[in-house]
Amino acid sequence: MYQFQYFRPKSLDEARKLYENNGDAKFLAGGQTLIPTLKQRLAQPTALIDLGGIAMSGIKVAGGVVTIGAGTKHFDVASSADVKGAIPALSHLASHIGDPAVRHMGTLGGSIANNDPAADYPAAVLGLGATIKTTSRTISADDFFTGMFETALEEGEIITEVSFPVPEKAAYMKFPNPASRYAMVGVFVAKTKGGVRVAVTGAASSVFRESAMEAALTKSFTPDAVAGIKVSPGNMNSDLHGTAEYRAHLVTVMAKRAVATIA
């Protein structure tokens, strides 16, 4: 790791000021992606502003909405009876991020602010049509994820909580990379008040909605409705773990399996 200054503010106000006063600062949440990134010298922030000292964790279920504080650990989401009761698919997703030790540190806010193309949480946030609350505004999931490791967050803007509307039903199916457990492809399918939503992670440069599948599932919410849909490999990732064609095929298979668990 390169050298950096370290701050642990007690409030969001203090965090924002520290960010403004430090040229190339980065916010540190659970650190499960940022610290490995720093170890590989893939980033060189002048300062780390640790958000771990600011109370931003907790889970509330009220009025058909599950609201989760940005600092809430994956483990706490996975083991929450409230989340499991309201949105079992979200609980299932959180329980399959990384491994138990990683889930004890990693946070919801950190995961979606990073927007790793193969991360799990972006699929739930987009698939459920969640709302992201920050220090300055609220952002809809459809506007939040803008590209590979890119989000709508402005400089110094901090996610404080995410609200997930409770769907009629939802499921998440991922094909994990056998070594890292990141999603080779993960598909989140939700039947919501606003219609059917299908969000795909791991396959392309950023999480995206698969509109052909949404249309097909709106007509008939069955595995067969998506089984015949061929996804174009045009925008898919191709790397040592799998080709674009392989990932495109996996999108259909994972979507079919997700629907099968709830149809």
Binding site: G31, P36, V102
Partner: peptide
């Protein structure tokens, strides 16, 4: 793996100052 505040974490992925 060590326990920090009663929970198992990977001590290679946490700063001492944290």
């Amino acid at each position: 793996v060590v326990h920090v505040n009663g929970k198992a974490v990977k001590s290679c992925t946490m700063l001492a100052v944290q």
